[in-house]
């Protein structure tokens, strides 16, 4: 479930990046790459799990599925938080820089 949620997040972020490409003022490309990286890593995890559990891999318990879904959304939230931090630090539109300059001029 975590893998599925991260793949959907990666696809949505990639579409959002493509819509604005080649401009990347919102750093959506970074977000998409982060989600793709996580999706690929979970895919590896899933392959190894499948090799061990075989058919049982596709029949998870409801409680496990709920826990994994909750984890998936938490992971997406963390990804968004990291992306927001990167966006504010890099400040590609210069919004924060301009606001700070304005404050300096007013003082």
């Amino acid at each position: 479930m975590t893998l599925l949620i991260s793949i959907f997040a990666a696809i949505i972020a990639t579409i959002a990046w493509y819509k604005n490409a080649p401009k990347d003022d919102w750093k959506i490309g970074t977000l998409a790459l982060m989600y793709w990286g996580a999706s690929l890593m979970w895919m590896c995890d899933a392959i190894f799990e499948y090799a061990e559990a075989k058919e049982e891999f596709f029949q998870p318990a409801v409680a496990d599925m709920l826990n994994d879904t909750f984890l998936g959304f938490t992971v997406i939230a963390l990804g968004l938080l990291i992306w927001l931090a990167v966006l504010l630090i890099k400040d590609p539109k210069g919004v924060i820089k301009n606001a700070l300059k304005k404050n300096e001029n007013e003082n």
Binding site: T30, M34, W36, G37, A38, M41, G79
Partner: peptide, 10 residues
């Protein structure tokens, strides 16, 4: 970006 993002989420 892929490695850092993936590692952090993992």
């Amino acid at each position: 970006n892929m490695l850092w993002g993936g590692s952090a989420l993992l």
